[in-house]
């Protein structure tokens, strides 16, 4: 019986000690590294070189409508950012370009007169597919609608007319209102 009690006490001591030694340290704060919470469109009028910036940010109010003039061509550059820590805004676009094989930027619109095509200087993956970071937009007529920008991770196909054709996982899906004058 005596040895029993000893073992019993030892076990109780063990459990109490382990309970007490539990660290009350503050857990480390995590700022997500791979998060994308900001999409920026830089739209440059190829004639005047006038540039306008439209920002979609999670939790913020929607950006102003993008106004394009009929018959003109605009050079558009898209950027993806992690702005969760205002003191350290990370440009995710560079990572997307580095891993071009696993990514595709895709644009979809319900404005039939708006054409979006890859720019000559656009980044390419190892197969020579244009990534969609740099595009040219041109439109005719007077209308309005939306352009949805997608960042697709590990697409099944890099070409197609619908989002469906690309498959893969959607990392970003953001709609911008577009007005054509």
């Amino acid at each position: 019986m005596k040895s029993f009690l000893k073992i019993n006490l030892a076990l109780v001591a063990l459990i109490v000690l382990s309970a007490c030694s539990s660290d009350d340290d503050t857990p480390e704060q995590i700022n997500e590294e791979e998060l994308i919470d900001r999409v920026v469109l830089e739209i440059t009028d190829t004639d005047t070189q006038a540039m306008e910036t439209f920002i979609w940010e999670e939790g913020a109010t929607a950006p102003e409508p993008i106004v394009l003039n009929s018959g003109k061509t605009y050079a558009v550059e898209i950027g993806f950012f992690n702005a969760s820590n205002p003191g350290n805004i990370i440009d995710i676009t560079e990572e997307v370009i580095e891993e071009a094989d696993e990514h595709q930027v895709f644009y979809e619109t319900d404005i039939s007169s708006l054409t979006i095509s890859p720019a000559g200087g656009d980044f390419e993956d190892t197969q020579g597919n244009k990534l969609g970071i740099l595009t040219n937009w041109s439109a005719t007529g007077t209308t309005s609608g939306a352009v949805t920008t997608y960042l697709v991770h590990e697409p099944v196909s890099k070409t197609g007319t619908d989002r469906d054709d690309l498959g893969g996982e959607t990392d970003v899906q953001v709609a911008f209102t577009v007005v054509i004058n």
Binding site: I15, A19, S22, P27, Q29, I30, E32
Partner: peptide, 25 residues
């Protein structure tokens, strides 16, 4: 029955914790 339990979500994942640090008694 007495139980002590500790959950430690490693922050090295770089992803926000699904289940937080906790001690349960």
């Amino acid at each position: 029955r007495a139980m002590y339990q500790n959950n430690f979500p490693d922050p090295a994942t770089g992803v926000r914790r699904l289940i937080p640090d906790y001690d349960r008694y």
